[in-house]
Amino acid sequence: MSAAPLTLTPALQQQLRDWLQEDIGRGDLSAAALRPGRCRAHWISKAPGVFCGGPLLDFVFRELDPKASVELLVADGDAVTPGQCLLNVEAEAAALVAAERTALNLAMRLSGIATATSRLVAELEGSGVRLADTRKTTPGLRVLEKYAVRCGGGVNHRLGLDDAAMLKENHLAWAGGVAAAIAAVRSGAPWPARVIVEAETSAEAQAAIEAGADGVLLDEFSPEALLELVPQLRALTSRPVVLEASGVQPEQLRAYAATGLDLISTSAPVTRSSWLDLSMRFSS
């Protein structure tokens, strides 16, 4: 499944250098066992899943060997099967071994997220409801983890606090209510900014729409409650308001999708996924 391309910004390139340095430290002591010279290696998948991380690999290997070359045989978002060859890489043997762990760790982590996302997206197929991620990400990996969600067919929620204002329980309590909180944000935010309210009751959801919220996140409502509530909220205004559910268990996705929601947000692909098992082998 295709996704918006990953841009290797200067900040991301520096992160990759730092991660390589974290592993290499003062130097790879195992390199002495290798014969000098260039060699080839290939990656295989040891489990079924969705591949992710390809755009990072050329940079990682070239950082240790500027003449390294990576031939990707699959694209990010492609389904892979056990035993499938994913890429070929050629470089100095010492560079291949030194970069191997960092490259594999990143690709296995991101592929695991893409795989978990794709399974949940498949549960929503045909419903018109999109699966979104959350800000529950690993510090330092947010851009990459959210990219992996896109590769699995999901959509990104806020990348950070400056993307949109989401007013939660604590905001509403300290602001003095839904209307006051929305008014305060509107008075200081740029005009294109969206305001989302997390509602824990039907009264809060109704108040959010009446106060002009662009979206309402319906937190931990049952599918049965939303079957009744969603049409009521749609009837309150003629303007488009995104209705989203959170606190959804994966086995309940189809039930929630039948309620008329626009989005279901979940942290599960990032917080609960297993790494996809990949391996690098020297080619004969």
Results as ranks from 00 to 15, higher is better:
residue 257 A to Y: 07
residue 253 L to E: 14
residue 258 A to I: 02
residue 233 L to G: 00
residue 262 D to K: 00
residue 238 S to I: 05
residue 212 G to H: 15
residue 223 P to M: 07
residue 207 A to R: 04
residue 212 G to L: 14
residue 200 E to F: 08
residue 229 L to D: 08
residue 203 A to L: 10
residue 204 E to N: 05
residue 229 L to I: 12
residue 216 V to G: 03
residue 233 L to W: 01
residue 253 L to I: 09
residue 208 A to H: 09
residue 210 E to R: 11
residue 238 S to Q: 15
residue 252 Q to R: 11
residue 211 A to P: 14
residue 230 V to Y: 14
residue 247 G to Q: 05
residue 214 D to K: 00
residue 215 G to K: 01
residue 260 G to A: 10
residue 238 S to R: 09
residue 261 L to K: 01
residue 200 E to L: 13
residue 202 S to P: 05
residue 252 Q to P: 03
residue 219 D to T: 00
residue 205 A to Q: 12
residue 238 S to L: 13
residue 212 G to Y: 15
residue 231 P to N: 07
residue 233 L to P: 00
residue 257 A to F: 06
residue 210 E to T: 09
residue 244 E to R: 00
residue 256 Y to V: 04
residue 251 E to W: 13
residue 255 A to N: 02
residue 248 V to R: 01
residue 234 R to E: 15
residue 200 E to R: 13
residue 254 R to T: 14
residue 212 G to T: 09
residue 200 E to M: 07
residue 251 E to L: 04
residue 207 A to C: 12
residue 238 S to Y: 15
residue 204 E to Y: 05
residue 259 T to E: 12
residue 206 Q to E: 15
residue 240 P to N: 03
residue 238 S to M: 04
residue 230 V to D: 14
residue 213 A to F: 13
residue 243 L to S: 04
residue 227 L to W: 08
residue 231 P to F: 14
residue 215 G to S: 14
residue 243 L to I: 04
residue 238 S to H: 15
residue 230 V to K: 05
residue 220 E to P: 00
residue 222 S to M: 09
residue 238 S to P: 01
residue 247 G to Y: 10
residue 201 T to P: 05
residue 250 P to K: 05
residue 218 L to V: 01
residue 247 G to C: 08
residue 237 T to K: 03
residue 237 T to M: 08
residue 227 L to C: 11
residue 216 V to Q: 11
residue 234 R to D: 15
residue 258 A to E: 13
residue 248 V to S: 07
residue 233 L to F: 06
residue 237 T to W: 06
residue 230 V to A: 12
residue 204 E to V: 01
residue 211 A to Y: 15
